[in-house]
Simulated scan of single mutants.
Amino acid sequence: MKQKIRLLTIFITTLLVSCNSYAQEKDDYSAKIDSLIKTTNPRSFSGVILITQKGKTKYKNAFGYSNIEKKTPLTTKDNFIIMSNSKQITAVLTLKEVENGKIDLQSPVRKYLPDLPKSWADTVTVHHLLNFSAGITDIDKPLIFKPGSDFKYGNTTYIMLGKIIEKVTGRKYNDVANDLFKKLKMKTTYCFEQGKTQNRVKGYQNTNNNLKLEETPIENNDKVSAAGIISNVTDLNIWDKLLHNGKILKPETYKLMTTYSITAQHNAFGKEKIGYGYGIRVSDKTPIKYLGHTGGGSGFVSFKVYFPETDVDVVVLENQSNENIDLFYEFEIKIREIIMNSNLMKK
């Protein structure tokens, strides 16, 4: 009897060791991310990370403080201003109105915004606004290049798209956006509203690891369609899952969104130029294809990428932005690289 118990104990111990080894072999990224987050030079990390595969959570953690003055720890449920990741939401809202027959991508913006002062409103199309190929720097200034010939990033074109959405729907942008969030069950995502107390973490400007509170990260309500959506990692993961699996846009519209005619370089996605569709960057010349976008400034950083071939989604939100633009996406770049070189990329 004792011999049987001893053999059974050995079998269970061996099984547990094997299972643990197998799990460690499969998860070759968590420890690397944990180690990375401990880094404080050239800057520290303060934010939340969520990584999923096929809808299952693979990594989820929060580091730092939502309120430095009160030393309130961040949690994975906390809300952040997602800055320019708001543009992807505005692109989708625009495309929803394309599906409804209210917006024509190839029509000049003058059709929807007749009071625009410059003559370029007759040649710049909605398509040019969506992929930053309009050459617009400011509504009152001349174009810096012929529409469709180059790429110039900025908030102005997406503020214009917000106005177009309001024009064709007869509703406020915030109401249109918030209705979509409700429909998608993104329960804690909403639009910034100036003068209204909203549930979100405080944002800080980082200068040589000295943090200063950003009192007014969003100057006015007009900026919401370009940089003023408030969300958290869970809701943004829901967004990615639904968007990239055909649950928000029709297949042909999603194809329009993720097809590009213009390329641009962004530090968070490498040194080479990659495609820019409608509110989304498309890296399809790399060994592993991914789609994503970033947002940063005024005390916040947001970063998300989706790998369609392995159904892996990565969302990183921080409540600090760096005075040094080269350090903006310091952690996000390395997290992306860790995941791209992990077992999660094995089909």
Rank of each mutant, 00 (worst) to 15 (best):
K2A: 05
F11E: 00
L15G: 13
L16T: 12
N20P: 00
Y29H: 10
K32S: 14
D34C: 10
D34R: 11
I37G: 08
K38Y: 15
T40R: 14
N41W: 08
S46R: 05
G47H: 03
V48M: 09
V48T: 15
K60S: 15
T75C: 01
T76Y: 05
I81M: 12
I82L: 07
S84A: 04
S84N: 04
N85C: 10
I89W: 02
T90L: 05
L93S: 05
L95A: 11
L95E: 12
E97Y: 14
V98M: 04
E99N: 14
D104S: 15
S107W: 01
P108G: 01
V109Y: 07
Y112R: 03
P114C: 09
A121Y: 04
A121K: 07
V124F: 05
H128F: 10
L129E: 06
L129D: 08
S133R: 02
A134Y: 07
G135T: 05
T137P: 04
P142D: 10
K146D: 10
D150G: 12
F151W: 09
K152G: 03
G154Y: 09
N155S: 15
M160P: 09
K163Q: 14
T169S: 08
R171D: 09
A177D: 06
D179C: 00
L184Y: 01
E193W: 00
Q194S: 12
N199V: 04
V201S: 05
K202Y: 14
Q205C: 11
T216I: 11
E219P: 00
N220E: 13
N221R: 04
D222C: 04
I229E: 02
S231V: 01
T234H: 02
D235E: 02
I238P: 01
K241N: 08
H244E: 02
G246Q: 12
K247T: 00
L249A: 06
K250N: 07
Y254C: 03
M257D: 11
T258C: 06
T259C: 11
S261K: 03
A264E: 10
A268T: 06
F269N: 03
K273I: 01
I274D: 05
I274S: 13
G279I: 00
I280N: 07
K285C: 09
G292E: 06
H293I: 06
H293M: 09
G295H: 03
G295I: 04
F300H: 04
V314R: 03
V316H: 03
N324Q: 12
I325K: 08
L327A: 10
F328Q: 12
E330H: 13
I338A: 13
S342N: 11
L344K: 06
L344T: 04
M345Q: 15
